[in-house]
Nucleic acid binder design. Sequence first.
DNA 1: GATGAATGAGTGTTCATTCAT
DNA 2: TATGAATGAACACTCATTCAT
Lengths: 213, 213, 213, 213
Amino acid sequence: MGKKKVPSLVKDEKLIQKRREEMVKAAVTLFKEKGFHRTTTREIAKAAGFSIGTLYEYIRSKEDVLYLVCDSIYDEVRSRLQSEIVMDQPGINRLKEAIAAYFKVMDEMQDEVLVMYQEAKSLSDEALPYVLRKEIEMTAIFERLIQRSVEAGNLFLSEEEVNLLAHNILILGQMWTFRRWALQKSHSLEAYTQFQIELLLNGIEMNRKASKV
Amino acid sequence: MGKKKVPSLVKDEKLIQKRREEMVKAAVTLFKEKGFHRTTTREIAKAAGFSIGTLYEYIRSKEDVLYLVCDSIYDEVRSRLQSEIVMDQPGINRLKEAIAAYFKVMDEMQDEVLVMYQEAKSLSDEALPYVLRKEIEMTAIFERLIQRSVEAGNLFLSEEEVNLLAHNILILGQMWTFRRWALQKSHSLEAYTQFQIELLLNGIEMNRKASKV
Amino acid sequence: MGKKKVPSLVKDEKLIQKRREEMVKAAVTLFKEKGFHRTTTREIAKAAGFSIGTLYEYIRSKEDVLYLVCDSIYDEVRSRLQSEIVMDQPGINRLKEAIAAYFKVMDEMQDEVLVMYQEAKSLSDEALPYVLRKEIEMTAIFERLIQRSVEAGNLFLSEEEVNLLAHNILILGQMWTFRRWALQKSHSLEAYTQFQIELLLNGIEMNRKASKV
Amino acid sequence: MGKKKVPSLVKDEKLIQKRREEMVKAAVTLFKEKGFHRTTTREIAKAAGFSIGTLYEYIRSKEDVLYLVCDSIYDEVRSRLQSEIVMDQPGINRLKEAIAAYFKVMDEMQDEVLVMYQEAKSLSDEALPYVLRKEIEMTAIFERLIQRSVEAGNLFLSEEEVNLLAHNILILGQMWTFRRWALQKSHSLEAYTQFQIELLLNGIEMNRKASKV
DNA sequence: GATGAATGAGTGTTCATTCAT
DNA sequence: TATGAATGAACACTCATTCAT
């Protein structure tokens, strides 16, 4: 799936996976609290339950931890999203459900999402593309769902507009976390979701239908 | 206007303002390039044209520089925005123009906007609220514009929805910079603006009109 | 022959010898390339074809590897030298042949010789004497050859001078490797050997003969 | 004089020179004792009388210290040598005096000479040539002295032989330090010098004279 | 007010060595 | 005997901050 290979001195693949999971879990907690730069490798090792030497048996550099964290968060977002999406919905409802599911995942994974979007910029030029690709894949998921509604005659959108709409969905989901200091005081997730879906879909739908008539 | 006071050892207020402007200009350039954490105070002082000792005559800590930078960028965004907004537009057009103006400012100040939103998290708990307040003020500008259209009968929105719509405008402007690696390849600023305005305003407008009938 | 005993956890002497040969061969290659300090025990083990754990079954510390390397190089120098020396030469010619043979061995084993003389200083106070003794033995070989010429009336040298001449021979052979960056560009091994033999032997020989007359 | 420039963060050139002298003095003492690799930068700073931070205001890396040490030792060897050489000696005696002076300097600076020749190999590929050039310059000094004796008809040597003889002089001086564990027990510096001068000069001289006759 | 040399706590990373399997 | 994962002391180097001049 186009993952970047992070080399390890340890050979046992099962063990690598296990240790990296512990490490990522510890790192996410710490990054949430104090950010990537203010977290030391020693703290990560300690929180993960092993020594600094052991940490470096499983990564080459601190940046590798950040990459593994981003990678892991994306994978979980995606996997939760896919398990939430109900595929038996007909037409445009499937898209609506998908948006609601995505917003729900964003809500549940607020801290992780914040960490990822705020720290990813510290990735090297070499690692960044791998993370951007994940974002592109997320966008593509919604592009496909939108496209299906277009093909079903539920939406009237050019290819360019399909792409923009997908980006909008993604960022409005992230906005729920980015601006939580403002939004989550005044709005419930349900109301927020309701509003955004209406804006993103009904609006356009009605608009174009109307203009076609 | 609710600014945080950053103490200085120097008495001459004019001098303080001058030196801080030089310092912020230098810092923005450097933060753009390498981020806040990777930029050293020495580099900032040098780029600003004075010694490290002098830098510390005008701030107490590196974080003060970041605060001044954020503060300065907000002020410029706001000032550019206000000079762009044409106040003599009637009804909903004024809002549309304001959105377009805001997007234009975001486009022109891409690097600064990115710096601000990516590094502000490094501000201390003491300084952060001052920056958030700026964001709230920005939101309020759009809330007022939207409210006016509601009152003029051009839009049908509850108070809660007015607030959400304002947030949407802000974040969709920021999205043009956050996701420029994806958006600015495929879309022109004009097309992007056109699309978002239609989505944000016409959509809702038509929708509600239709549902009222 | 006065070798230092390097303890091993393994009992089988044959195995010890085999493993240590592999280890020394690997280490020499690595030491040549990057020196003793920059070579890690892991690298030595890997290059030798076994695990780091196994390496430590046959030595107690990294320094033991260095000792074994020095020891092994000395043994090879000596063994090559002895196989080159033609013992059936009469009088002073036997000494000349021995010097030429020694220079030839130095030339063939340049890298090893450099490694040994540059890294031996890192040996502990405990191990160093064992290596120095080897150097003393090498000196003794030439002292004996010189002495024989003195006794045969080919050279006129005091005991002290015999010792100094032997040291001269050794160091002029090493010089061919130490200063190769200067010597090997401008001089062939043959010319170099020719010159040094003349200087070391004919010179003195003629000189004393002349002065005696 | 073809020195490598070692950058410093400090601007005051006088201060740089002073601090570097302190640093080199401290480093030489430590390198003598435990070698370059076993000496830490903190130890050097402490022995020099300043903090680790200050040390790094005057160098970029530990290797810079080694370069400064080598550079400084060469400069002192050369300066001592030149102050010892009596220029009013006629003919071949000037060369003999020079050799004796050089051996005397080697004797006085034993520890420094050992440090330099044993650790110079740890210099980077970038710095090494600068040190080698110094050695070449030393060789050239003796080449010139020998050449003068050749031109005066005191020695009969080809250009190639002049070069080799100069190298011999250098290494026989160094040998007095390298092999001090053997030489300095059995021989006085005077006897050593006497023997080597005779070997290096009288030998060749007489030899060629004889062969010419 | 301005300077820049001095400081030292703190950071990422390495690597010889051990020991349970 | 052989393995290789685990360890943590140790290291080179950085950089925000101070303060004497």
